[in-house]
Amino acid sequence: MQYTFNQDQWAWYDFKEGQEVELKGLLEKFPACHSWYEDVKENKSNFLELNTQTRGKEYIWGSLVYQQDIDKKEDKKVFHFYISKEFFITFNFDFNIPESDKAGVHGQMEQAEDGVEGFFVLLGEILLSYLNRIDGYEENLHELLWKMKERNNLQLLEKVYENRHELLVWKNLLIPITELKFIAREAYGEEIRKKPEYSRVDTRVNRARMLIEEYQQEIDTMIRLEEVVSTHRGNEIMKTLTVMTVLFTPVMAWGALWGMNFKIMPELEWQLGYLFAGILILVSTLGLYLYLRKKGWMGDILKGKKKDSFFE
């Protein structure tokens, strides 16, 4: 499909899967980009290349992963592109970008001076869809933040790391677009920075990266908080087990003593021996408990955890 803009000053050639014959027919008219399709047609990952051999005839080509499922590595969309001032070509680009208006995009392209700026209109739409989805991510993160205070457990920690992985996916999608921005400046110099669509893409990239970095800091803070809480609880558990072991030491010690099978054991003949042994064990245990409490080694192990509290 061919679209022309700005009073036929430049064109956008858009080809889908199954239109390889039409694409090759077009490439015969433009020998400079003839090898482009052969180099990228099997590519399923990000790839960027720049040709600056002829001044005034610079072009950029490659492949871009522009949609990626958060859970499935193989579920992604890749399109191939060739950009010059006179035109740009896209192959296998799906315009079903969320919240994108095809007519509105064409209207923006009509105002673009050349094919390079027209391609940046397309990049701007892709970035806009990223930003809208990142805004939705903020709501999930807010919900997770308060769930961590209400109930801190392994399932919640798993959810925190899932959110962290999602941020890494967003960052991975932004990297090639950021590189495209710099390659355009390398190819076309400072004049490209004055173009409105390049400026819009630059702002959206910076905005998306800022949001991702801020959310990543929040996630990292939540993980550090979880580690502190887990460490504290682990220490409390070890302290509790240690105190319980110490408190039961008199029981075990006296029980071991009177469990011996020596022939001569005077206590066996005592009429009140059982009562004496019980009182001795209770007094020993109580005395040990009071000693630990006086030293402050009991801590908060006898207190229950308060609702909505990290530590108490």
Results as ranks from 00 to 15, higher is better:
4 T>D: 07
6 N>G: 03
12 W>G: 02
15 F>D: 06
16 K>H: 15
17 E>Y: 03
17 E>H: 07
18 G>E: 14
21 V>T: 11
21 V>C: 00
23 L>H: 04
25 G>F: 10
27 L>W: 01
38 E>D: 15
39 D>P: 00
45 S>E: 13
47 F>Q: 06
47 F>T: 00
51 N>G: 01
54 T>S: 07
54 T>D: 03
54 T>M: 02
62 G>R: 04
68 Q>N: 04
72 K>M: 11
73 K>V: 15
74 E>W: 00
76 K>H: 09
83 I>P: 02
89 I>S: 02
90 T>R: 01
91 F>M: 07
94 D>M: 07
94 D>I: 09
101 D>M: 02
109 M>Q: 06
110 E>C: 03
112 A>H: 10
117 E>C: 08
120 F>T: 12
122 L>I: 15
131 L>F: 08
134 I>L: 14
135 D>P: 01
136 G>Y: 01
136 G>W: 00
137 Y>A: 11
137 Y>L: 15
140 N>Q: 07
140 N>T: 09
143 E>Y: 00
143 E>S: 10
144 L>G: 08
145 L>S: 12
146 W>K: 13
147 K>E: 15
148 M>D: 02
148 M>W: 01
150 E>D: 10
158 E>S: 07
158 E>Y: 08
158 E>D: 07
159 K>Q: 12
170 W>V: 06
170 W>L: 09
174 L>S: 03
175 I>A: 10
176 P>Q: 09
180 L>P: 09
183 I>K: 09
189 G>R: 12
192 I>R: 03
195 K>P: 04
200 R>E: 14
202 D>P: 03
203 T>I: 09
207 R>Q: 12
211 L>K: 09
214 E>S: 14
218 E>L: 12
218 E>C: 10
220 D>Q: 08
222 M>R: 01
226 E>I: 12
227 E>P: 05
228 V>N: 13
235 N>Q: 13
237 I>D: 15
248 F>K: 03
253 A>L: 08
255 G>H: 08
257 L>D: 00
258 W>G: 03
269 E>I: 12
273 G>K: 08
276 F>P: 00
276 F>D: 00
278 G>S: 10
286 L>S: 07
288 L>N: 05
288 L>H: 05
290 L>F: 04
292 L>A: 13
300 D>M: 05
